[in-house]
Write a protein that binds this DNA or RNA. Structure first.
Lengths: 211, 211, 211, 211
DNA sequence: TATGAATGAGAATTCATTCAT
DNA sequence: AATGAATGAATTCTCATTCAT
């Protein structure tokens, strides 16, 4: 009698999970070319052969991981956009807080996912992943922009070119992930409020206080 | 008719310059491991053999370029720090402006140098370059921090943890370079003033206005 | 209710039969190196593990199959040689007919066995099978030669070097198996008589007719 | 000053020629899967790296060689077909003689080319080479058939289904190449006339004699 | 100074074989 | 008897580096 289906599935899932975790961490830091299958297998605690049992190639694993990172980021932001009963300003604050929490919590892999996306954007191999369909790549950017425009209408967020504001805010977020990843705790992370101030309308705050 | 010594020297310098330019652009985008000597030679318009005539190895070229990027950045900031007759706020504004000008000027290789540093920090191979001496790596950070502390004393710059402020400002700058490099003109760059507001004391501005 | 011993044995035989059939077809076409255990198991409809339950290795299966093909061919010819009350000419005609029937009957695996032998002769791995004992390999050839020599004595078969005649006749048979296997029904098979004419003494035929 | 273009070209051609020769001999005997790059490089007297300097992969070399074998065979037969002032019977005799000379001359690589084609037909990887265009594969067969039909009109060649006759003659030729390759001089090759008799109209011969 | 053919060490990949259940 | 996850040795392939000219 063979192993039961449940046993096989459990073994399989555990191995795949280990491979993915190892892949994200290594690819995020060293990129596709700089990470060897050997390293991944060692980090995942499995043999090289098993890697190839589940993934046809190093690139296939890489692509799966970057795709997952992209769609996860997109979905998180889209959920936030579609949340009812929350002001745009509050939405931004929530997003910032989530990001910072991820950076402060050492077990969290959010900064790795960000760096993974960054690496693949930099080396242009992101187009191996999305084909010519750039929508996947820029969807987060556009969703964030929608929240920001909404905030400009309600007065929560500074006036001015919404695209530039989005770029600046995202730049800061990306940069913080990068520093966290490269230097660990050497660079202290800023408070949430300072990051939010990149977008939030201070006039309004002051005006509210006056009242 | 043999070439004159001057002609030879000019050829030599041109070749080396081409190698460096090709190296910076390719390493910045694809990292050390992801860039092949072949690509560099092709991009530089020379033969592989000639590459090795000038550089002992791929790594040697890489190290030279990252070192140059680091020291250039460090020196620029140190000069700014030591400038007399300029307020800390003005110093920051000058630095921001220089960075943005580099990003807007397509011929400029400043964003490539930034990305080169980022890549080597991410993949940890920066320590191939500096040995265990981290000072080279963190010097820019410290210099910028000094300017910021100075600004906090004069009131130009927001109060609060100077380290965190430095991190946030640098994050934004890094992020912008990254977006410029990866997406060209897709993301619009923010105005200088928005970047400066990350550091600059708005209370003071308002207060000044009131008067 | 546990299975009876008979049921178990039947399953066992069925599995082994499936493995053999798959092995012959795949090895015949793709050779030892070009056929993977995986393919065989898939074609046989069993798991890899079960394959190894019955055969210690891929090579063991291969050797068993080639050996079987060789001995079967040898025995068929030896039986024919030793048949009483049949003229050598008739023996050849019988052999030719049997071969052509095998080629025309799609279910028949005779051409696969021939190709299997050919593959293993070509790649020299036949000596893995027979050791240094070449007799197994050349036995068919020698038996056929004996029949041919006998035919030359009785006048059934053309005069001339018996070795060369054997070679030519066998070449034609091999070639036909090969074409059947590679191109299915694209190449029409010749009639039995044309093949026999390679050996049969036409003078005699004409002479007989005249009478 | 670099090596001259002539020097480079001579080196290049010599290496490529060595690779091709080694490839034909090894692939012909052991097939694509059974031949290792290592063997080819060793046989060719070059390094593995150089192999890959000239051929993107083992398969690319294989494809080039099979293609060359196919087109060479096709062209030889087409030339023969189009020869003026030669009877169809004489054309067949010429072809047979050329083949036998190739088999008897140890330096000749004709039998290797035949076996190479056979191997790739057997393993079905010939369609990697020709795509779905079967014409390249069957062109030799069709050209030979045209010569045979022509011979049937002139009375040089036996009457009957021309396709079957072509198959039988080609089978014999293929088979002889195969035996030569596998057993060297163990099997004596038949005389040219016996092979021709597979096709040639003996009635005519006898009839001519009588006159 | 300049070339690109040639090398080989190391990385990616395949696949026969083992093993716990 | 039967399964397929897991292993690692052997193979394919890449690419930094050398070298003769």
């Amino acid at each position: 009698m063979p192993k039961t289906k449940e046993q096989f599935d459990a073994m399989k899932m555990a191995s795949i999970e280990n491979i993915r975790d190892a892949g994200v961490k290594l690819f995020a830091k060293k990129g596709l070319a700089g990470t060897s299958i050997n390293e991944i297998a060692k980090e995942a605690g499995i043999s090289i052969g098993l890697m190839y049992h589940y993934y046809k190639s190093k690139e296939e694993l890489y692509i799966e991981l970057v795709k997952f990172a992209l769609t996860t980021a997109n979905e998180l932001l889209k959920q936030l956009l579609e949340t009812k009963d929350m002001s745009p300003g509050k939405k931004i604050e929530t997003f910032t807080k989530n990001m910072l929490d991820g950076l402060n919590n050492d077990g969290d892999s959010a900064p790795y996912y960000f760096a993974l996306i960054d690496q693949s954007l930099l080396s242009n191999n992101i187009y191996k992943i999305t084909g010519t369909d750039e929508s996947l790549v820029f969807e987060s950017y556009h969703t964030l922009q929608l929240i920001i425009r909404e905030g400009q209408r309600t007065g929560d967020i500074k006036n001015g070119d919404a695209r530039s504001l989005t770029t600046l805010y995202l730049s800061a977020i990306h940069g913080l992930c990068f520093f966290k990843l490269t230097t660990g705790d050497y660079f202290s992370l800023p408070e949430s409020s300072w990051i939010n101030e990149i977008l939030i309308n201070k006039q309004q705050i002051l005006w509210k206080r006056k009242k």
